[in-house]
Design a protein around this nucleic acid. Sequence first.
DNA 1: CGTTAGGTTGAAAAGCATCAACCCGTGTGG
DNA 2: CCACACGGGTTGATGCTTTTCAACCTAACG
Lengths: 230, 230
Amino acid sequence: MKPDFSAAAERCPVISRATAGSRERLMPHARLRDFARGDMLYSHDTPADRCHVLLSGWVKLFRVRPNGDEALIRIQKSGDTFGIEEAMRDEPYRHHACAVTPSRVLVLPARVLRETVAGDPEFAKVLLLHSFEVADGLHDHIESLKAHKAIERLAHFLRDHATRHEGRIMVTLPYDKTTVAAYLGMQPESLSRALSRLAQHGVRATKDQIEITDFDALDALIEQSTEGQD
Amino acid sequence: MKPDFSAAAERCPVISRATAGSRERLMPHARLRDFARGDMLYSHDTPADRCHVLLSGWVKLFRVRPNGDEALIRIQKSGDTFGIEEAMRDEPYRHHACAVTPSRVLVLPARVLRETVAGDPEFAKVLLLHSFEVADGLHDHIESLKAHKAIERLAHFLRDHATRHEGRIMVTLPYDKTTVAAYLGMQPESLSRALSRLAQHGVRATKDQIEITDFDALDALIEQSTEGQD
DNA sequence: CGTTAGGTTGAAAAGCATCAACCCGTGTGG
DNA sequence: CCACACGGGTTGATGCTTTTCAACCTAACG
């Protein structure tokens, strides 16, 4: 049917692994929605009547504490799914979801998701394996929050987001620095200072570009906290 | 069959919700194992040929960084399951598992688990919902690591572990303080100091007993960081 | 008894947050 | 076309939080 959908499906770790039957059951109910930066996809504690597959852009999942602070839970990239947990259980969403860049999203009714799981054991297994992968990521995130200090978490983040570009290793921050800071569990000011301190470790940060000039030096910083003395 | 098993099954969020058919398939292959404090249940990067249900005691899941530091990922209590993710995927374990108190564990071969999932769609769904609940806990943990400072995380921990006892609210730390500190993402020294500072907030800590003398005061501390000024 | 493991305490330093000022590119309205 | 305000980001000064390192305590145990 609509060409965007099948291309999108390939990138989604859930839909791309679903059987043809499940896809045919799911996709007719899929709607495509576009969100501008700052748009809310859904709100904490509202009924999870739909789940989402991110086709492009970035979406943050967060809670708001009464003092107004945001606690950033997760950041979703293209291909990621969210709202599935709550939709499967027919519960309210456990957090807010907000686009941090312009984003295109595939929206599926919760009811259809549940019916597909009920009708296709293979699809349940796909969801299960996907859920394990998400949990893996959460474990890694917890480990880094407990074991690394701010500058190391940032170094790790940069390494993960680096891309080669005409022989140079560049990092384009996927969203604004305030959000990066929240994701890494630090204040924006600390992020700014950490970034300048990384100049000593192979990172050159200019106005709106970050280049890794010495990948090994950056690596050494990351591995150092991880380096044996025995 | 063996009486321990059925009693245990009721407490386990996975097995208690499995169908009778799945239980009959699983339980004949279950073995009961006891571990002393400090015993390893399994090691990081070894083949996950079995998964575990904790019947009593406490088990920590952790990684070791080359410098010898332990990064504590999760602490499992009675009824919790671990190793399922890896066993389902036939992958190596993603962390070490070690008993922090004497522990009794139900051990199931990975093969039987996978066969049960393959044979019973309902069981896959139970696993899926369980996996969601685990992820919920990880989200909460991440939020608290990012948004709360050490003393608040400790206050929260104490509140979660408090039990009424002849009208008094007592907290018995389930395992040694070094492990509690690692779980909360702080150094043992910081835990010790945080605990004494909590004396100002309705917590009396003696030699090996902790009493919450003013539950509201403790609550106030936890909610404070969460308190609106708008 | 001496030893050891787990825990506490103190002093000093590092790390990070906070608050305020400031910078700069962008957009808006006079 | 300019003045201005605004959001995002940076910088500096300051203080709180947490770590680090060392010493010390105490209950348990051989």
